[in-house]
């Protein structure tokens, strides 16, 4: 009984059904575990792990401003639209409550998208394809992405960042 002390020796062999279930469950669990490291070698859909510490927010802001100045092609709602060189380093900055700037990427080209937060923790959710990443202050997270579908995407903040959280929507074009 689960509510009484068991007999003196309870270390006993399993019955057939116990052994069968233990074997099946263990096998499935080891499979789902092994999938994770193995997929880093055979698959492409893996979380990026490249990251840098940003000692000084101005260092990142300067990179964003330089990119905007050089590659600006338009403006929407006061936010510049930037068409950076294909295959280059791209900088995206989150702050309460804005994604800056609007990126215009080319389909099939690989970009290194640096995301960074100026103030508090934000969450980057690219919709409608539903890819989600955390954006932290003091850390530059490098997402190496190759847009494979063209269209208009939105970046929604999905980590609570104050009262304007629901208004923190950005844009991303793939052409």
């Amino acid at each position: 009984m689960a509510i009484k002390e068991p007999e003196r020796i309870w270390w006993k062999p399993y019955t057939w059904d116990e052994k069968f279930w233990v074997a099946v469950a263990l096998l499935w669990m080891l499979t789902t575990f092994t999938f994770m490291p193995v997929y880093h070698f055979i698959g492409k859909q893996n979380p990026p792990f490249e990251t840098y510490r940003v000692r000084n927010p101005e260092q990142f802001t300067a990179l964003v401003d330089a990119m905007v100045e050089k590659y600006k092609v338009g403006e929407e709602e006061g936010i510049p639209v930037v068409h950076p060189e294909p295959g280059s380093d791209v900088f995206l900055q989150a702050s309460m409550w804005q994604w800056y700037p609007i990126l215009q990427l080319e389909k099939g080209k690989t970009y290194r998208i640096h995301v960074y937060s100026l103030d508090i923790v934000h969450g980057m959710s690219i919709l409608p394809i539903n890819m989600n990443f955390m954006v932290l202050p003091d850390y530059d997270y490098v997402l190496t992405l190759t847009p494979t579908t063209s269209g208009e995407y939105h970046i929604v903040c999905n980590e609570y960042c104050g009262l304007g959280h629901h208004m923190m929507v950005g844009k991303l074009y793939v052409k």
């Binding site: 990251t51 840098y52 510490r53 940003v54 000692r55 260092q59 990142f60 990179l63 330089a66 990119m67 050089k70 590659y71 950076p84 280059s88 380093d89 900088f91 850390y139 530059d140």
Partner: peptide, 10 residues
Amino acid sequence: QIPDLPSYSP
């Protein structure tokens, strides 16, 4: 152990 952000020329 995280490295500092290197300098980039955009």
